[in-house]
Design a protein around this nucleic acid. Structure first.
Lengths: 152, 152
DNA sequence: CATGAATTGATGGCGTCACCAACGATCGAT
DNA sequence: ATCGATCGTTGGTGACGCCATCAATTCATG
C-alpha cells in the first residue's frame, strides 16, 4: 500500500451492502453533527411520527419508526421529562400508554427538522436533485421488499 | 394509529439520511445473519483489503477500509489467533507492523465472500440488476464527495 | 546533528445502536 | 374461565464508530 493514497478494495466497492453502510455512516455522522446534542435521531423519528399520526401507543410508535419497543421507552421518558411529550394511560386499554406531542415538542420538532435538512444538503451535494430522488426511491423499494426485524 | 398497519411517517421517508440508514440496517442484518458468527463484517473488509493490496501496515489497512486504527488492532489480533493473518514488524520502519494474509486466511475470505454474496441477492431482490448498479454508483459518488471521519 | 512534528501500534474508554429475552399486567377470542 | 396475544418495562448483549492518550519511532527542519 502506498501510504499516502487509500484506495478502497474493489471487493468492498462491489458489495451493495458495504456501499450502503458506508453511506449510512456518512449520513449519520452529518445528521448527528447537525443535531449537535440537541436530540438523537431516534427522538426525531418519534416526534415526526407523533406529529403526523397524532397520539399513539408506544408500540405503534416503535412499529412505524422501526424502533424496538424497549428502545421507545427510554426515548419517551426522556422527552416527557423535557416537556416535549405527554404520556397517559389509555382509558380504553389498560396495557397501552398514549403518547401525545406537546406544543413545545412540536416546536422542537421543527427546530430539529431544519437542522437535519441542512445535513441532507451536505450529504448529497455531489448529486443532482433528480439523482438524489432516484437513490431514495430505489432504496425505498428495497425497504418495502421486507426485512423488518421480526419478520421471517 | 391503526395498530395493524404501520406506515412510515412521510417526514422520515423524505429524508435521504433516514432512508439510507434504514437500508443499511437491513443490509447489515442480512449480512450478519449470512456470516452467522463465522466472522464480523469488519474482519471481512480487512481480509479483502489484504487480498487485493498485499501485505500492509495496520494503519493503511484501517485507512482503506474506513476502520479506525484502534479497531484494526482487535481484528488483526483475532485473525492472527485464528491463523488467517500473520503479523511481523516492518524491518524498514520500526513503528509499523506488516500484516499478511495466510493461505488459510485466503480460503476463509472466499468462504465469507460466498456467504455475503447471498445476502446481496436477498437485499436487492426487489431491484433489477441495472437498478442495483445505479444505487451503488450513486452512493459511491456520495462517498467520493468526502466526509471520512478525520476530514474537515 | 539536534530538535520538533508527525506517524504507528496499542490501550482504554465512550455513547449509540439494533436486538433479544423475560416479566407482570391486561385484553381478546373461544 | 382459560389461553394466547399484546402492552410497557427492565436488563442485558454485542457490534459499531469514534476519541484521547501513550510510548516508540521516523521524518523534516534548521
Amino acid at each position: 500500500m502506498d501510504g499516502t493514497t487509500h484506495p478502497t478494495p474493489a471487493r468492498l466497492l462491489a458489495l451493495p451492502s458495504w456501499v450502503i453502510n458506508q453511506a449510512a455512516i456518512a449520513a449519520n455522522r452529518l445528521t448527528d453533527r447537525a443535531l449537535a446534542g440537541t436530540s438523537s435521531r431516534r427522538q426525531f423519528a418519534m416526534l415526526a411520527a407523533l406529529d403526523e399520526f397524532g397520539p399513539s401507543s408506544q408500540a405503534d410508535l416503535g412499529r412505524c419508526t422501526g424502533i424496538d419497543r424497549s428502545d421507545v421507552v427510554a426515548g419517551v421518558n426522556a422527552m416527557v421529562k423535557q416537556g416535549f411529550l405527554q404520556q397517559r394511560p389509555d382509558p380504553a386499554d389498560g396495557r397501552r400508554n398514549i403518547v401525545t406531542l406537546t406544543p413545545e415538542g412540536k416546536d422542537h420538532l421543527e427546530r430539529l427538522s431544519a437542522l437535519i435538512a441542512g445535513a441532507q444538503d451536505e450529504l448529497l451535494h455531489a448529486l443532482s436533485p433528480s439523482e438524489s430522488e432516484m437513490v431514495v426511491d430505489l432504496l425505498k423499494r428495497v425497504l418495502d421488499s421486507g426485512w423488518r426485524a421480526d419478520e421471517r
